[in-house]
Design a binder for these strands. Structure first.
Length: 531
DNA sequence: CTAGGGTTAG
């Protein structure tokens, strides 16, 4: 960096307006360079300079919270502004709990918090559902006399909503009737929607004395997430002004309830109107392609993302990996995955799932080992995906080892899905006895689907006796599941036990027709044949 | 001296 440039950056960092100051650098390396200059030129003891350094590192998008914390820790008596900047920084990090710790430090240093301290503290409590600290902070609000600041109150309302304390949120709202604004109303709409009480949310929405597009979006999202997509669409059509978020809310609503062509149509309409989509809209459209296995449209979207120079962040990158994986373009999936600058556990899981789905069990395992070395800690989903890969590729020894690793090393308690993978792993490999032993050793009640997988394995590998026994058991366990009859019937067919097969079909017909009076016999037959 | 909240994503 030439010195003129350095001076310009320094001047911008120390600009009176903080928002100007936050544009000073495009990355943390530039900040560190200016920081070095600050030290050599004796500015390092100037409080204001330090304030700006910390604020930039903690708050700016191109900042570095870790670096901010180390600057902060080297200051003997940090100012309230420094505390507030750090609390804000941690509230938008992956360790929001740290901001509560900083608040404790602030109190220990005999500093009185102000109205800028609390909104971000409550935000941290919201993200991590920290109800008890949230309640304690609520008590401090009155103690420090800042209980009638609408920003503080609104963040408290959100905090209670996130912790499932709707009654407290509403009480707080009522107590502050004189100061509540459109944000407070919208927070309640969101809170009640997220708790599944979308009808109550609608009442708040209808009673709002003022609305803006965010309030409409909140209500649309509330409906869409409860599957009430018609109501959501009606609001979308009726709203006076749609923001980009309105479009992406509606598109993601369609995508999430499986109405994928509607999602893609609306995305097309949006682009057709000349509206530049945002990342959530792109992610939802890519996800719709994944669900539809629509490779061609997915490729088009990927091209659009590159051509329009959208940043491929973790979420968008993962959505693309998922799309390519589900559409069978595993090389393309791997390419996007490898090019992602930042990956989280979901990105790794998605890539492993793609490999597993495409029968690349060995590669799924290799990626899993690479994840141990250079990736995030695996979670229960990671193991479902790895085990699926093993079972699809007949990697019995490896699968057994991975299961051992999961329970013994990672201390992850196996869910039904994990057991299902193991039964599938043994069953597909024809190791019926191992599968049976495994099911019998399970500490939880086996789900009918597990027996189903076993009976399927018996049929494929000609283990008629066990198949018969388990199949009968399964039919009695789930007398209204048509697939169970089909399986048992197929077992008998494989053993050429035509009489037994006829009995099963008759039994099925009676029970099925009884429960589904609208079905004709022809349909019933086709059900048996195809299931 | 500076500053903040409610909507949308894999």
């Amino acid at each position: 960096m030439v010195s003129g440039n350095l001076a310009r950056k320094l001047a911008l960092l120390l600009h009176p307006s903080l928002s100007q100051s936050l544009t000073a650098f495009s990355n943390i390396a530039e900040l560190k360079q200016v920081h070095a200059h600050i030290i050599t030129s004796g500015l390092a003891h100037d409080i204001f300079t330090n304030i700006r350094l910390i604020a930039f590192a903690a708050i700016s998008e191109s900042g570095d919270l870790h670096y901010a914390k180390s600057l902060f820790d080297h200051i003997e008596h940090p100012t309230l502004f420094m505390y507030n900047s750090m609390i804000r920084g941690f509230s938008q990090s992956n360790r929001p709990h740290e901001s509560v710790k900083l608040y404790t430090r602030l109190l220990n240093a005999q500093i009185s918090p102000d109205k800028f301290t609390f909104p971000f503290l409550f935000r941290s409590c919201s993200i991590s559902s920290l109800l008890v600290p949230g309640q304690q902070l609520h008590a401090h609000i009155s103690k420090f006399g800042i209980d009638s600041d609408v920003f503080v109150v609104n963040n408290m309302i959100s905090m209670y909503c996130s912790c499932g304390e709707l009654g407290n949120a509403w009480k707080l709202f009522e107590e502050n009737r004189r100061i509540v604004d459109v944000v407070s109303w919208t927070a309640l709409v969101t809170g009640y929607s997220n708790s599944g009480r979308v009808d109550v949310a609608r009442q708040f929405f209808d009673n709002m004395p003022f609305r803006n597009s965010v309030s409409w979006n909140a209500m649309i999202a509330g409906y869409a997430q409860r599957g009430k997509i018609v109501e959501a669409r009606k609001l979308f059509d009726d709203m006076p002004e749609r923001s980009v978020a309105s479009w992406s809310t509606m598109i993601s609503g369609y995508s999430q309830c499986g109405m994928c062509s509607e999602a893609l149509d609306l995305f097309g309409e949006m682009v057709g109107f000349g509206i530049r989509p945002n990342e959530p809209a792109l992610v939802s459209a890519v996800s719709a392609c994944a669900q539809l296995r629509a490779l061609e449209q997915g490729v088009w979207l990927h091209g659009y993302v590159e051509e329009q120079r959208f940043e491929v962040n973790v979420t968008l990158g993962t959505a693309l990996v998922d799309m390519y994986g589900k559409c069978g373009s595993i090389d393309k999936a791997f390419q996007v995955f490898n090019e992602m600058p930042e990956k989280n556990v979901l990105s790794w899981n998605t890539m492993i799932a793609g490999l597993a789905l495409n029968g690349c069990g060995k590669q799924a395992l290799t990626l899993f080992w690479r994840m141990q070395v250079m990736g995030p800690a695996p979670n229960d989903i990671t193991f479902i995906n790895v085990l699926t890969g093993c079972s699809h590729s007949g990697l019995v020894v490896e699968g057994r080892h991975v299961f051992y690793l999961m329970t013994q090393e990672f201390k992850i308690i196996p869910q039904l899905e994990h057991y299902g993978c193991m039964v599938d792993l043994f069953g597909r490999a024809g190791l019926i006895k191992e599968a049976l032993d495994f099911v019998n050793d399970m500490p939880v009640q086996p789900h009918p689907a597990l027996w189903g997988a076993l009976v399927g394995a018996c049929r494929i590998h000609g283990n008629v006796e066990l198949g018969e026994e388990l199949g009968k058991h399964l039919v009695e366990l789930e007398p209204h599941h048509s697939g169970r009859y089909a399986l048992l019937s197929n077992i008998f067919a494989a053993a050429k036990k035509w009489d037994d097969m006829a009995v099963v079909r008759k039994l099925f017909k009676e029970r099925w027709v009884l429960k589904n009076p609208g079905n004709s016999v022809v349909e019933t037959r086709s059900q048996v044949a195809t299931n």
